[in-house]
Design a protein around this nucleic acid. Structure first.
Lengths: 139, 139
DNA sequence: AAATTATTTAGAATGACTCTAAAAAGAGAT
DNA sequence: ATCTCTTTTTAGAGTCATTCTAAATAATTT
């Protein structure tokens, strides 16, 4: 399911610069995780990973960096009903989510694979939708 | 849009008893608001209303009462992406929501008025969906 | 290398909500 | 009504994810 290419330091650096973000040590490291390895991580998971993979990093930097990446359009955020924690998503295309209720795992569902028909009063002009499918994933 | 019947004290009391909840003064009052007058209120809005309509009420009682009503099945809760606050919904039937992005107003969308077609891999067994439509409501 | 600007950091602050333990209110039996 | 026993209510402390603050550090420009 998770199918992300490894990104070299150079490539991450380039990505950051293209997005107008100064590629600092901390940002490059966090990007390597959230843009590749990480699968819908929370700030807590990013912090745990960063503490293992960097000499030293502060909680605040993790949040600062994630917010910077969101502002730069490299990440998106959302929350699920069952948790207070923000989830960071490197898939910035139009898509929805499937939550496996047994494991808590999240899967991306492409917008093109879902069609929604609405017979609602014409006063409602819909610009966008957020959909969370919940159920069981059987591999 | 808001189309709720007035509920007398007696009726509220009966509703609470049927749900197995002791009808105290505070609970009856809060029910009158959340089951009738209130439109997708937050705890903050319930507190504000309660402070005007009761001699005295504590923040904790508002939360206790709302949680009791949720446990009793008289209310549902959810959150919207743009706010940290829990929203209390007296519509406990299967339904979705429409958020008017200009005003922040919420409208119920009946599940029967929406049909969702999914062409997703068969490993996904969907049990339920949460949908938030966002756009403009033009009355 | 000095000056200017941007980033990182520790720790305090925030905000919505929950917990704690004591006071008050109800319910039931006598 | 009165005495238990249980349930609610309450004020205030606590929690948890996240943001803010202001000082230290690093990077970039001059």
């Amino acid at each position: 399911m998770k199918n992300k290419a490894f990104l070299s330091t150079d490539l991450v650096q380039k990505k950051l610069q293209e997005a107008g973000v100064q590629p600092t040590l901390q940002r490059i490291a966090i990007c390597k995780y959230v843009l590749c390895e990480g699968d819908h991580p929370t700030a807590e998971q990013v912090t745990k990973w960063a503490e293992k993979n960097l000499e030293k990093i502060s909680q605040a930097t993790v949040y600062n960096t994630l917010n910077t990446l969101v502002d730069a359009g490299l990440l998106r955020t959302f929350k699920l009903p069952h948790s207070e924690k923000v989830i960071y998503d490197c898939n910035t295309h139009d898509h929805y989510h499937f939550l496996d209720e047994a494991s808590g795992s999240l899967y991306d569902i492409e917008a093109k694979d879902v069609s929604v028909e609405m017979k609602m009063p014409h006063q409602f002009k819909v610009n966008s939708m957020e959909i969370v499918f919940k159920g069981n994933f059987k591999s």
